[in-house]
């Protein structure tokens, strides 16, 4: 159970938006993480360097926050790793099949008023909410 944190949500969100604007302004690329990371597997080798550095920066950003403001929340304990693995597999496959995830469709796509991204975002929000309802309230896994 977590509490509503409107200010940190808005500030963090604005930083994510700024990252997307910076990446487009400098590199001309959409900040969609499944596209950037998935491209490490499917893009030609000359198009991989910036992807690696973006991912390194992403981990570095979380690390920086962890150093500046350590342990702002407690890590989840006891959640079945088998479910985590299954979820990762499904997310990898689904995000590539659907040409994007929360960042590419949910942030960048909605900002461009893309009908494709709106349809994708509504779809994954609905199936995610149904999944949580079934897993948490049906099977009692938390």
């Amino acid at each position: 159970m977590t509490e509503f944190t409107p200010y940190s949500a808005l500030i963090g969100g604005a930083l994510i938006g700024l990252a997307a604007v910076v990446l487009m302004a400098l590199m001309g690329r959409i900040a969609g993480i499944s596209g950037i990371a998935g491209g490490l597997i499917s893009s030609p080798s000359g198009d991989r360097g910036w992807r690696v550095l973006f991912v390194v920066g992403l981990v570095g950003g979380v690390a920086l926050h962890e150093i500046l403001r350590p342990e702002t929340f407690a890590l989840r304990e006891g959640f079945p790793l088998a479910i985590v693995a299954l979820a990762g597999l499904i997310v990898g496959l689904g995000s590539r099949m659907g040409s994007g995830c929360t960042s590419g469709h949910g942030v960048c796509g909605l900002s461009r008023l893309s009908a494709r991204s709106l349809a994708a975002t509504v779809t994954f929000m609905i199936t995610a909410a149904i999944t949580v309802a079934v897993v948490r309230h049906g099977f009692g896994v938390t």
Partner: peptide, 11 residues
């Protein structure tokens, strides 16, 4: 860009 993105996710 990655750094800003990660910072935003953490904040």
């Amino acid at each position: 860009a990655g750094l800003l993105f990660g910072l935003g996710l953490a904040v």
